[in-house]
Write a protein that binds this DNA or RNA. Sequence first.
DNA 1: GCTTAAAACGAACGTTCGTGCTATATTGGC
DNA 2: GCCAATATAGCACGAACGTTCGTTTTAAGC
Lengths: 230, 230
Amino acid sequence: MSAEAMRPAAKARKAHGERTRQSILEAAVHIASAEGLEGLTIGRLATETGMSKSGLFAHFGSKEDLQLATIEAARKIFIHEVIRPAFDAEVGLARLWKLCDIWLFYVRDGVFRGGCFFAAAAAEFDGRPGPVRDRIAEIMKEWLSTLRRAVVEAQNAGQLDRVVDPTQLTFEFNSLELGANWAFQLYGDKQAFARARDAILERLRRHATKSGSTALPAAKGKRSRAARAK
Amino acid sequence: MSAEAMRPAAKARKAHGERTRQSILEAAVHIASAEGLEGLTIGRLATETGMSKSGLFAHFGSKEDLQLATIEAARKIFIHEVIRPAFDAEVGLARLWKLCDIWLFYVRDGVFRGGCFFAAAAAEFDGRPGPVRDRIAEIMKEWLSTLRRAVVEAQNAGQLDRVVDPTQLTFEFNSLELGANWAFQLYGDKQAFARARDAILERLRRHATKSGSTALPAAKGKRSRAARAK
DNA sequence: GCTTAAAACGAACGTTCGTGCTATATTGGC
DNA sequence: GCCAATATAGCACGAACGTTCGTTTTAAGC
């Protein structure tokens, strides 16, 4: 009844506001990833979107709410760009590898202007307690859990040796990805992606079972590095 | 003559200013590592040191100069706390390992409030061109070079297999350290240090020659992880 | 103890920050 | 075409920012 009274019309009533809110957040995400969530200023965002400060501000009760909304928007993009495509791969080593591989492309292709949105946000807020920091930490835990689950599933599928500690492997992969992101942001070093990729693949190959190794990309010869350097 | 005219008295004349400048920078370094180089505000710093804004400001011509001076102060601390002690170890695998090991302690022991000063600064400024960003990049390159040199020296000493690519190994070690720093700052996860340590040691052991492996700490039994978890 | 330069201060500048309040467009439902 | 709700704009606020200025305190050299 009450739920039935919530006609689609009521939703359409809100459509316009929701749409501009969305376009604001789209701009916010890119500014924040490059200049930081604190550098994301209301005035700057208003200029960027061609709105007035107050008009824009009305969509969010406070700057903190804007930051939180921006984080959610970034999360959606991350899920769409990394998680979803990786889940097209079948469970096991293939999915685990694809998660890592796509993540590297997600940074390299500039899905966000400032590299990984959450790596930047985490570094900015790790010393400032509050809901923003908490939400960032939650989302990165989500990512780590997804990665770890993929490791365990690969083991359950008999494609990955059970002696490897899933938490340890997850830590190492995440670190290598953060390292590649760091090197690319600070030095524009694209080779860092290849290095992270090599390091991850080397670990996966070393612990892959015979049936598992077919799920990984074919190993290149020793000349691969020299060829790449050229 | 002119040089002789520069009597110690003339130096003593300037002593007081230099000393307060140093104490300002000491406070600045800790604030900046926790709140960022931009969050390091002149008013905040004045309050912290019990000085007036203008009196403090006179020591630096601009905020950017203050940031640069803060970076130099942090670099000196880093050299004193990490580089110098590691160079007590003899050239080769021992020094390489000590560089990595001490770095982890440097973060864990809170030499800076916000973890690794330069990791935080790099994340903050990697998207903002200018002298501050340039200097941070330079200093981190210094660190990478030091690490890489240690790898090469270990190879030259016949303690590390020559098939390993020094640049690749340096990238991996640096990534693992950044990963530990990240996990500790965001989650307070102290186990991350053990994980980074294990990962680094595992790689070193795998590529150490017979003569080299004596330079590494004795391997713990398999129960070590279970014991640590308890 | 007087002189003089360095060091620190207090007050104010112009901007920009986040955030309210009030009025004006814009829009969907009838 | 009118109504009511929603969406945007205009304006002003207090606070904090980096920075400048003229003055006062501090301390070293003779």
